[in-house]
């Protein structure tokens, strides 16, 4: 079964420890103009996870909410399906991981991702795609991802996705302040990372107009025909070629 993380927005205090732990574990640098936490936080090749401060209204009172963003690790990821050299693959443990040695650099994954997560090392001579790997190398050893392990408020819970879904359902049911929706349960066909919140998800800046059908379904509906069309087409064209040639030869023969 696949692993995931449950993010409880109501418990996050915006300390940003998770973003720092991510940078330390993955040896990432900092960019002054693109912060990893704050109101202007944004993902880029150095920021695999960010905490965005959002000013919202709760019960008529202004309030801050802190939104962690990173790869959601889809169950049926578009980025992996569109990769023509298998540089991005879905592992059985849950993480969607990237191998730069196989990457051609076509950047199809970047546009295909419904959450706009993969970023690019635009200023490198031989660049890589960058995104959260869910610390796959830690998970395989039975450890938690770096970000989860440092969270001081239990806003992040690591575990089996099925268990996390149950936990999320129970949490929502037990407390009326929660929005009755688990973000990631069905988005893009389901993601390993799940979010629960007391503020509507669109107000938190999460993309909500996302297909519930896994995106690879759309391309598969076309690609599954390829072998048939190729074999059928070869036979058809060969037959047509033979027939039309023969016909013109017969015509020529009749005339002479």
């Amino acid at each position: 079964m696949s692993k995931g993380v449950l993010v409880d927005i109501t418990k996050c205090v915006g300390c940003g420890s998770c973003t720092v732990a991510c940078k330390m574990w993955n040896s990432l640098g900092y960019k002054k103009d693109i912060p990893n936490q704050g109101t202007d936080a944004a993902l880029n090749e150095e920021n695999w996870t960010t905490i965005t401060y959002k000013k919202v209204t709760v019960n008529g009172e202004p309030a801050w909410r802190f939104v962690k963003e990173q790869c959601l690790h889809c169950q049926d990821p578009a980025c992996a399906s569109v990769c023509m050299s298998k540089a991005i693959v879905k592992t059985s443990e849950g993480p969607v991981v990237y191998d730069p040695t196989l990457c051609v650099g076509c950047r199809y994954c970047m546009i295909a991702c419904p959450f706009e997560i993969p970023k690019y090392e635009w200023n490198k001579v031989l660049p890589s795609v960058t995104k959260c790997q869910m610390c796959a190398n830690k998970i395989i050893k039975g450890e938690q991802p770096a970000c989860v392990s440092v969270c001081p408020t239990q806003a992040l819970t690591f575990g089996e996705r099925n268990d996390l879904l149950k936990l999320a359902e129970n949490t929502i049911a037990a407390d009326s302040k929660y929005v009755k929706h688990i973000y990631g349960q069905e988005e893009a066909g389901g993601t390993e990372w799940l979010y629960i919140s007391d503020v509507p998800f669109e107000e938190l800046g999460l993309k909500t107009n996302i297909s519930k059908i896994p995106l690879p379904h759309y391309t598969h509906e076309y690609l599954k025909n390829t072998p048939t069309v190729f074999i059928g087409g070869s036979i058809l064209f060969a037959a047509l070629s033979f027939y039309t040639k023969r016909r013109s030869e017969v015509e020529k023969h009749k005339k002479s």
């Binding site: 569109v82 990769c83 050299s85 298998k86 196989l102 650099g105 660049p127 391309t219 690609l223």
Partner: peptide, 25 residues
């Protein structure tokens, strides 16, 4: 156009057959 022009040949050995881009390639 591709970022990793040194890797242009990878799809020949590492088949991402689930991608339309692979069929194009």
């Amino acid at each position: 156009e591709i970022g990793r022009w040194d890797n242009f040949w990878r799809p020949i050995v590492s088949w991402g057959y689930h991608s339309p881009m692979f069929e194009v390639y």
